[in-house]
Design a protein around this nucleic acid. Sequence first.
RNA 1: GCCCGCUUAGCUCAGCGGUUAGAGCAUCUGGCUGUUAACCAGAGGGUCGCAGGUUCGAAUCCUGCAGCGGGCGCCA
Length: 464
Amino acid sequence: MQPARGLPSPTLYLGIAELFQSPPIGEKLIIRGWIRTRRTTRQVSFVELYDGSTLRSLQVVMAHEQIPVERIESELHTGSSLEVWGTLQATPNRPQPFELVAEGYQLYGQADPEVYPLQKKAHSLEFLREIAHLRPRTRTFQAVFRIRSGVSFAIHQYFQEQGFVYVHTPILTPSDCEGAGQLFRVTTLSPQETDFTKDFFGRTAYLTVSGQLEGEQLAMGLGKIYTFGPTFRAEPSHTPRHLAEFWMIEPEMAFYDLTMTMDLAEDFLRSIIRHTQAHFSEELQFLAERYEPQLLTQIENVLKESFLRLSYTEAIELLEKSGRRFEYPVYWGADLQAEHERYLVEEYARRPIIVYNYPKAIKAFYMRQNEDGKTVASFDVLFPRIGEVIGGSQREERYEVLLNRMEERRMDLFAYKGYLDTRRFGTVPHSGFGLGLERLLLFLTGMSNVRDVIPFFRAAGQMG
RNA sequence: GCCCGCUUAGCUCAGCGGUUAGAGCAUCUGGCUGUUAACCAGAGGGUCGCAGGUUCGAAUCCUGCAGCGGGCGCCA
C-alpha cells in the first residue's frame, strides 16, 4: 500500500460492503472502485462508485472548489476507475445513509464515453451477451455471479456436512456415457489423419459428458461421493436451456435405493434454495425488480410444501384425464414432453414434482430394472418455469442383468470393463443423480437464458 | 435438426409503398444553490443487416444469405 495521501495513519482502506455493514462515520478513508454514474451540478458533483463487494454503490461528493469541475468532467465517466479519499459523512435525510465527502482522487483508468459500451441505463441481456467480458460490470451480472458463487458454496457445504467425499472425475474420457448426447473429440492428429492409434492417447478421446460412471466406481470405495465440475455436450441445441460447456453436480451413494435418493435430492434442493434465500436477499430483490416479479414468491412456494411425487404411470393417467389436447400424444411408453411436464408442474401440482419409475425403453442402460419388467428405478425433478433440474436413478447393480442390457444395446463391453468390474466384485445397490447448475440458477435468479448465468458461455455456434 | 419472429443513430425502439428517416436515453456544448436512472436548452450522430429482384418510386413488397432471439426436439 502506498502512503495515504495526506491522511492520518493508519488510513482505512475499506470495501463498500464493509462501509454498509458498520459505517465509520466521521473517519477518513480511501475507497477504490469504478464509476456507475456521475451527476454534476453547479457547485458539486456526485459520483456513484461500486467496487464489486456489494450491489450497493457509494455516493461520493466532490465540491468543485476542492476538485476542479473541468477535471471531473474530463476524467470521471461511467466505467472510469479511481481511488478517492475523504471523510464519511452521515446523511440521514437523503436516500442513502451516508456519503463520502471527497478531498481528492487519483484516476486509475478512463473509460472513454464515446466508445465505452456500458451506459448509466439498463441494457438488454441480448446486447450484453455480445460484450460478455464487460457483463461483470453490471449490477445484474454482479447479482447473478454472486448468487452462483453462493450456490456453489452451499452445494459443497451440504454434501460435506453429510459426509460425502468430493471427487474429481476426468474431463478427458475414452468413451461415451451412453445416451448423454454427442461428444467433443479431443485430438492432436492433423485433420487428414484417421489412424487413432497414432493419436495422443493411442485411441480416441473425448470431453466428458458425465462423471457418473467414474463416480459410481469411486462410490464403491468411498461410500458417498459427489462431483462438481464442467461437462461438455456437442449437441447443437439452440435453446435458452442448453450450453456446450456447463457445470454439473453428480452425487453417487452406495447402499441408497430410489426412495432414499429422491429424499436426498429434495432435501438437497430445498437446502440450496433456502441458503440462497437467506444469504442473497438483496441480489434476489434486485433481480425480481428487474426481471422476474414473481421470483421471491416462486422461491417461497417451492420451500412451502414438499415436492409432489408421481410415478410415471400415474403421470400418464393424469395427463390422459386432463382433457387437454397435447401436441404430442400421451400414452404409456411415451416420453414426457415439455408440454406434458409443464401441465403437471404448473397447472396440476403448482409446485415441484418428482416423476419416477419411467419405462425402461426410454431410459439409459445403467438404470435398475424394476420387478414389473417394464420400468426402471429412475426419477426426474421438475420445477416450475424451468422444467427438469435433476435426473437420477438407482443403478443396475446385478452383473447379469446389466450385461444383458448392454448386449441388447450392442454396447462395446470392452470399453466398460472397469464399470462392469464394480458389479463383478462386491457389488451393492447404489444410486445417484445429476443436477445442472445453470438450470437451477435460472430458477434462483429469475434469468431465462442459461447464457446469462455463466460468466463466459459456450453454446452451439457461440463463444461468449 | 425443424418451425416462427426480429435486424432502422452508441443503446432501446417508432416508421410498414410516396418529399431531405424519427423519438427517448447516451455523447458533446451551455445553463442550473446537493443530485438520486438529476433537471432545462441546444448540437452532432444513420450506405434503415448483406446481396439480388419487383416498381415511376423500397427502410417499407419478394427471394436468398448472415446474425440474433424464441418455440419444439435432444438433454442437465
